[in-house]
Design a protein around this nucleic acid. Structure first.
Lengths: 347, 347
DNA sequence: GAATTTTTGATGTACGTAAATCAGAAATTT
DNA sequence: AAATTTCTGATTTACGTACATCAAAAATTC
């Protein structure tokens, strides 16, 4: 059996109360005694039974996820994963809530962050909008002792404790690399459909993509970026216009959330090389019909669970194992699509 | 706060003892009373606090992982993940142990399974060797009430409770599909390097690969399978021989664990399209230098944690959520390689 | 050496569940 | 209606930790 606090008390020759004082950093222990206890802990290899500790503490960790509202399928997927995690995380004494804010609205995001701090939550996860007032709000939360992680899109120099998301430059490079390989020596320019260049993750993906295309031995032109605002209708018209004006178009990289419009514009044109982001109902269907050739995906479930782990660790003052919290970039083609639309693993 | 057993007792108008009897399927409860309790559970939305329950039970779950010995990097990775999971799973009252057996040795595997059953473990995870005596041993374990999951390579008709691993036919199809796209209309045959055709997962991968190649509009020859027995030296010589005798070779699909030999044989030939399985030190390095173009990977950490969850659920008589336990097939190219060699997430 | 402060011990309660015992109530059978 | 069986209630202990209280011991100061 694992050693308990009683075993420590016995081998250290002190009372249970003293062990408790050492373990929980309570005052009133001489240095000598503390050392004795710590030695006993080390020799016995004691590790606190977190389940029992949490039970005794009956502490709950209210965590808030601030997510963009609207019909962005990826964000809705994130929200679904939060709910799913909330269902399972009751045992871990975590209480999750979702606060929707208008997309790209810095003021609303600031209000939501300040509100969460006022509510005394133990942690905040937010999809950051790249604005100085948001960085200031995150700074205030951090100063108030509330850990903050940025989700999906980062905000450097904001005092956020951690970023949960993929390396978006690498994502862009991956898209460029696949595009190059799939096209081979087929001629023609490629187009890029983004949401907005004011969003950091979109900018980073574009940078990576352009860099990889530029490095290729086959020179290939990249048309000016189409900014569809992640809106289905606008994306549809932009892509349609591009198709009409560029008959020799070879491929499209859709790095934002405008895939519904993209797929609508392409109809049944399977001759183009199309690479998109995030596995949703639309992209999945388009992969299966051959309209889209590859989908790059960040697993919403993994991100949510990573955010929860990080926030809990921060709330407890524990270290975060960076390597363990790295979010992978998944590549999906028609043949390795996961089975269900609601696939996920709790791994 | 979450409802507790006391709340159920109150709203159902019964005693704590009766609630306990219903919750733990103990005898001595009339159908009417049981229904009352279950109604209370439903209306209150009670969920058992597993942490408290495990604490009270002070039950431990000894689980055994039976893995092939030897220097197969993927198997060693699996073992490392078991150790890592064991470190974290102390809180979940799971005790993990690894039993190494000679690779492809059915008799040794049978002995290990029977030994685990004799040791009264609560669950067995084993990399199955495709032999009738192994199926029989698994059947004995199952009959003795010990749940068994097959890991990586399945064994149908054996009475195993669950299979933890990827869909290997889909893996082969993915490899074929990528190979076709990467090669485009470049002519030349492709070679296949396998470990052994007597292993089920290798056969399945080959089937998927051949089917996809055959479906392609561009006719492409596949050379006879090279069986390298997952041995570096044998694989090296087989691939070298193939390269010498087939100057117009366009690509190689390595579906087993012979990648060290494969990479050695290819030296610095980056002109071939090479697709391999499992992200190890060798395949990672070869991806980075361009010798290998894509690596298909099953995440050892995910598999181990899935196996643990499934075995615990089976041991407790709980249902397994199949969708949650599906293992994904990762595609890695140079650009989306995860950062560290010991990358992993506990998600 | 007395008075004070600091450190330690002893003890109890709590968290939510499991599991056992024993008495009493209700249902069933005779 | 009595005897029996089946069901239910009340109560207790335990799991490993957290946390509080009060007394006792040790160290420190005056």
């Amino acid at each position: 059996m694992r050693p308990t606090v009683h075993d420590i008390a016995d081998t250290a020759g002190v009372s249970l109360a003293t062990v408790d004082r050492v373990l929980n950093d309570r005052p009133g222990v001489r240095g000598v005694t503390k050392a004795k206890v710590e030695a006993a802990i080390a020799t016995l290899g004691y590790v606190r039974d977190v389940a029992a500790a949490n039970l005794a503490k009956s502490r709950v960790y209210p965590l808030v996820f601030i997510l963009p509202a609207g019909d962005n399928p990826f964000m809705r997927g994130l929200e679904a994963e939060v709910r799913r995690a909330g269902f399972h995380s009751a045992a871990e004494r975590t209480r999750l809530s979702v606060v929707p804010v208008p997309a790209f609205d810095a003021a609303a995001l600031v209000a939501a962050i300040d509100g969460a701090v006022a509510d005394q939550v133990s942690g905040i996860a937010a999809v950051a909008v790249d604005a100085p007032e948001v960085a200031a709000a995150i700074g205030r939360a951090h100063a108030a002792g509330v850990p903050v992680v940025t989700l999906v899109s980062d905000l450097a120099n904001s005092g956020r404790d951690h970023f949960v998301g993929v390396d978006n430059v690498a994502a862009g490079r991956t898209a460029g690399s696949l595009m190059g390989r799939f096209l081979g020596n087929r001629p023609g320019p490629v187009a890029v459909l983004a949401g907005s260049m004011r969003v950091r993750d979109h900018r980073e993906r574009l940078d990576g993509f352009l860099a990889t295309i530029a490095e290729m031995p086959v020179g290939r032109a990249v048309l000016p970026v189409l900014e569809g605002q992640d809106d289905p209708k606008l994306s549809l018209s932009l892509v349609s216009g591009c198709l009409a004006s560029t008959p020799d178009l070879a491929g499209i990289y859709s790095l934002g959330a405008g895939n519904q419009g993209l797929v609508a514009a392409l109809a049944d044109r399977t001759d183009l090389c199309v690479i998109a982001h995030e596995l949703t109902a639309h992209t999945r269907a388009a992969l299966e019909t051959g309209i889209i050739d590859a989908v790059l995906n960040q697993d919403a479930g993994h991100e949510v669970r990573s955010a929860i782990r990080v926030l809990r660790a921060k709330a407890d003052g524990l270290p975060v194992i960076a390597a363990q919290e790295r979010i992978r970039l998944d590549i999906f083609i028609k043949d390795n699509l996961p089975a269900g639309p609601d696939e996920d693993d709790n791994n």
